[in-house]
């Protein structure tokens, strides 16, 4: 082949490529790299989810994605990063249910309406945990003990004014008892505090003390899933014990409000492919995560409902006047 001919061919091919790029619309989203803006630092649960998502979007949907960590300000930093970009879907916020807490506590100068909710994909329940040798056998035992002496048991968990304390608050309202709250600044430390007899009962994510839960050193008296979790089939739900307590922390993705519908539809289609893949299912199993697929309007209304009850909780608990 003469060099001239090859030049012509390559020009033609290149031109064709350019041409296809030129005529493409949002239906061909994405045309270039998509940023997954994780609003937490590297290495945590949210980052792990974001990185798996990035990998599977590349593999399953043929996207080109990049994880961008923007931690800080209880999520404000990541949020403002996304909100300062055009509403074109190229910056997808990877976030958690901390969103509603941060807004309820005025830690974040944004509203839910600033985002277009796309999909909640992972959920983790809270469970009432005690040490192996504790007298308590059920969630009701715990309620009875707290009613008898609100200061008798040392109750705590991860975070201040966060999800687990909020679950305890809902628990207290449902069963009309009082309990204190001893906050720990890392979820792993909660399991250690239980084991070391520095706490008597904790509201915790079961996976944060998985070794101890599986070995039986920590017993779970109730779990906040709607039905029994497939990961902890022996742990009764709060619901089946007659306690109206079902809620989960979620991790999901959203884009800036005003992102065109067809772009969001393309993102949804790609997420469908991700969630249908075996890799995703294995990943969720390994992480002991509940597989959620709460989309668009449903996702938004879930967040709105949570914002409302959490604001009540924060007022009640004295975090917000």
């Amino acid at each position: 082949m003469s060099s001239k001919l090859s030049k012509i061919i390559s020009t033609a091919v290149f031109g064709a490529l350019l041409g296809t790029a030129g005529v493409s619309h949002a239906a061909n989203f994405p045309e270039h790299r998509v940023n997954l803006v994780v609003w937490a630092g590297a290495g945590g649960a949210l980052d792990t989810y974001g990185r798996e998502l990035s990998k599977l979007l590349d593999e399953q949907a043929g996207w080109q994605t990049k994880v961008v960590n923007r931690p800080g300000g209880s999520g404000s930093v990541g949020m403002s990063y996304v909100l300062n970009q055009p509403a074109d879907g190229y910056n997808i916020l990877v976030h958690t249910s901390t969103l509603t807490f941060s807004i309820a506590r005025n830690l974040m100068p944004y509203k839910l309406d600033d985002l277009r909710f796309v999909r909640a994909m992972q959920g983790e329940p809270s469970a009432l945990a005690v040490r192996k040798d504790a007298d308590l056998q059920s969630a009701q035992d715990f309620v009875d003990a707290m009613k008898k002496d609100p200061e008798g048991l040392r109750v705590g968990g991860y975070g201040t004014g966060g999800f687990h304390q909020y679950m305890l608050y809902q628990f207290m309202t449902a069963k009309d008892f009082k309990a204190g709250w001893i906050p720990y600044d890392a979820s792993g430390k909660v399991a250690l505090a239980l084991m070391g007899d520095h706490l008597d009962a904790a509201m915790m994510t079961p996976s944060s003390g998985l070794s101890q839960v599986e070995s039986g050193d920590i017993r779970l008296l109730g779990i906040s899933t709607q039905e029994r979790s497939s990961y902890f089939p022996d742990v009764p739900t709060f619901k089946e014990q007659g306690i109206d307590l079902d809620d989960m922390v979620w991790r999901g993705v959203s884009v800036k409000a005003g992102t065109p519908d067809d772009v969001v539809a393309s993102i949804q289609a790609a997420l469908d492919k991700v969630q249908a893949s075996d890799e995703w299912k294995t990943f969720m199993k390994e992480q002991k995560q509940e597989d959620l697929s709460i989309k668009d309007g449903d996702f938004q209304s879930m967040a709105e409902k949570q914002l409302k009850t959490q604001s009540e909780f924060l007022k009640e608990a004295g975090f917000q006047k």
């Binding site: 945590g44 792990t48 792993g188 430390k189 399991a191 250690l192 003390g209 998985l210 101890q212």
Partner: peptide, 23 residues
Amino acid sequence: ALGVPGSPTTAVLVGALILHGLR
């Protein structure tokens, strides 16, 4: 011994293990 990371760096190591389906 306990499955709980003792430093920020070991917390990242946990993430690396979990990628391989190990806890």
